[in-house]
């Protein structure tokens, strides 16, 4: 992740991948002078306000770097690292070991643009595009959770 030629030139548009899902997401390729086969996956659970950014390596199909916000993480040694944490790839643990993100991520998960800028800075990614706001939840008229109300 130390390579500083990584950049994203596309504008980012959120996609609600399915009707009536709390999750919105986007995927955007990362270009670099070395042509690393990587892209960033981002997903956001609007109800839980949980956010994940993942740098995924296309050839191995795995996350090599990522940020999770809003949920606790337990490392293989049993240590809890906090709700906002960074996953970094290692030979031994692959992406299972995480580190607190409090030294580099200062904005809350519900401020996606601010978090995105901080994440890009930490991952040495130069973001040259624009990011749109997260779309509001749009429920179908006949939407029914069977007596469960999420928004009152």
């Amino acid at each position: 992740m130390s390579n500083e030629t990584k950049r994203i030139t596309e504008n980012i548009t959120w996609v609600g991948d399915k009707k009536n899902s709390e999750t919105v997401k986007f995927r955007v390729p990362v270009v670099s002078d070395q042509d690393y086969p990587i892209f960033v996956d981002r997903s956001y659970n609007r109800y839980l306000e949980r956010l994940s950014y993942k740098v995924i390596h296309k050839e191995i199909g795995r996350r090599i770097y990522g940020l999770d916000m809003g949920k606790e993480h337990r490392n293989p040694d049993g240590a809890l690292v906090g709700e906002n944490h960074l996953h970094k790839w290692s030979e031994e643990y692959e992406d299972r070991k995480a580190y607190s993100a409090q030294q580099c991520i200062f904005s809350p998960a519900n401020k996606p643009l601010e978090v995105w800028k901080e994440f890009c800075a930490e991952a040495n990614i130069n973001f040259l595009g624009a990011m749109e706001e997260i779309p509001f939840v749009q429920l179908e008229v006949d939407f029914d959770l069977g007596g469960i109300t999420l928004y009152e």
């Binding site: 899902s21 659970n45 109800y47 809890l80 469960i148």
Partner: peptide, 28 residues
């Protein structure tokens, strides 16, 4: 979860009983 992220379960009383749910986190 397989990457070490902790699983939360959400409880809520509803009419006639209660529910437990993951609020969409597992599929996300």
């Amino acid at each position: 979860y397989p990457d070490g992220d902790v699983i939360d379960i959400f409880y809520r009383r509803i009419e006639g009983g209660f529910i437990l749910t993951d609020l969409g986190e597992t599929l996300r």
